[in-house]
Design a protein around this nucleic acid. Structure first.
Lengths: 107, 107
DNA sequence: CCGTTATTCAACCATTTGGTTGACGTTTCG
DNA sequence: CGAAACGTCAACCAAATGGTTGAATAACGG
């Protein structure tokens, strides 16, 4: 029903992928540089980046032989909104809350 | 490094489990009643509830022959905080947000 | 042109996940 | 007591996940 939430939460469930996202928070990076701190093959990191891209959490742009990875923080919004319904905003009408956010965040 | 985040996000990645959490937002429920709307065996739902319990997202208490499931919204906090680090809410119009909250919380 | 760097692809493997079924232990109730 | 309701357990299965290696593709640089 909301496959977007499926892929976003699944992507966030892996510690390697969360670490990658945290790295990209600092700056855009090439695939090789993303892989450097991990004790894991480059191919494995490439797969993780594919999962993050499929979830919309990052984007990848190839310039020359280097593929740059860029954080896409907006992709977390839907998931974050979903979660807010359970925390400090427990009493909120969730549908109204989502409508509010859409109005606020989408021009 | 943060196994809590692993289990919480993994638990949230399944649409059946998210639906269960949404149901429990309304009220505490017995396992059988949780299972009722799903086209799935009771055993499968029981497993899902086990995953949610392991993640700390719900608690289960047996009274008589009925096991009551209760939402534990605090468990989402760590994950929510982690996500806030990516700044997805920075574009919100805070004044409008306050007005929204007042309207929602004061009936 | 040739070697090197950057990245993915393909095949493979072990483990986990999400589901099934049937048997099993408890608690309630007529 | 005996039957029904509540829920889990165990064994099984198919598919997805996270990793490996080795070959393949593409772009630079001397």
């Amino acid at each position: 029903m909301t496959p977007q939430l499926d892929t976003v939460f699944a992507a966030l469930a892996d510690p390697t992928r969360r670490a990658i996202l945290a790295m990209l928070l600092e700056d855009d990076m090439a695939v090789t540089d993303v892989a450097e701190p991990f004790e894991m093959s480059l191919a494995a990191i490439s797969k993780h980046l594919g999962v993050l891209t499929a979830a919309g959490l990052i984007s990848q742009e190839k310039r020359g032989r280097v593929k740059w990875c860029k954080l896409e923080p907006d992709a977390m919004r839907e998931a974050s909104v979903w979660m807010q319904g359970f925390g400090q905003f427990e009493a909120i009408n969730l549908d109204a809350f989502e409508r509010f956010l859409e109005n606020e965040l989408d021009p």
